[in-house]
Simulated scan of single mutants.
Amino acid sequence: MASSSSDISGKWTYRSFHNDPKLVGDNQKAALDLIFAEANLSFEPVSSTDFLGWLDWTGGGMDLKGSMTQGSPDTPVAFSIVGYGRPGTSTDGWEYAYNGCLAYTWPNGDRQVPALVGTIVRVKPHSGKPAGYTASFIAVKA
């Protein structure tokens, strides 16, 4: 089955998480502290394999450029994205890289919402935080 960048186009709800293996149990604050970022995510195809995107949150955002590889019944659609902070804003100079894939669609799934899963890395230091920090993310189709 051939795939195209339209497979991930549209609006998504994005959340990234600190990769802390510690269990949080019923500690709601500890669970919330795992959230690295939460935002609205949008993708727009510019070709069958390339897309532009926007990651927007209250008080900030980044512009995204990405590409994807074809999926098959045994291999999910995979993508690679670079996010750039917006000049003249609080994210000016930021750069993050994202790698991920379209999550598996269960044949007998009940009301499954499409999801993207992957990891991110801070490419350039900013706000006193070093480059190299990694986190995991999930985005669900809005």
Rank of each mutant, 00 (worst) to 15 (best):
K141A: 12
P114D: 11
L64P: 05
D50I: 00
M62V: 07
A31R: 13
G85R: 07
Y133D: 13
W57T: 01
R15F: 07
D33F: 06
E38T: 12
E38M: 10
Y84N: 11
A2M: 08
S90P: 04
I35Q: 08
L34K: 15
L116F: 06
V117S: 07
D33Q: 15
L64K: 03
V24K: 12
T119W: 04
V121N: 01
P73F: 08
D26C: 03
S80M: 05
A115P: 01
T105S: 14
D56N: 10
P76D: 02
I81S: 06
R15T: 15
G83L: 05
L23T: 08
A39F: 09
L116T: 03
D33R: 13
G93L: 07
F51K: 02
G10T: 04
T105A: 14
D56S: 12
L41R: 05
R122Q: 15
G132D: 10
S6I: 06
I120F: 03
N27G: 02
K29F: 10
D63R: 15
N27D: 15
R86V: 15
G128D: 09
K22C: 00
W54D: 09
K124H: 11
K11M: 06
A39M: 09
L41V: 03
D26A: 12
D7Y: 06
D110H: 10
G88N: 12
P87M: 05
W94I: 00
G132P: 11
I8H: 02
P130C: 02
D7W: 03
T75M: 09
N40G: 14
A37R: 12
G118T: 07
H126D: 08
V121D: 01
S5I: 02
V123T: 13
L32H: 08
L52K: 14
W12D: 06
W106A: 14
S47G: 11
G85I: 05
P87A: 14
A139M: 10
A131V: 08
T49E: 09
S48W: 00
V77K: 06
D20T: 12
S72T: 15
D56W: 00
W54P: 00
D7I: 00
L55V: 03
W94D: 13
Q112N: 11
T13R: 13
N19S: 11
S48A: 13
C101W: 03
T13A: 12
G53K: 07
R111H: 12
S90C: 00
A103R: 11
G128R: 09
M62R: 14
N108D: 11
A30I: 08
R86T: 14
Y104S: 08
D26K: 11
T89H: 06
L23C: 04
N108A: 10
S90F: 07
R111A: 13
T134Q: 14
D7H: 10
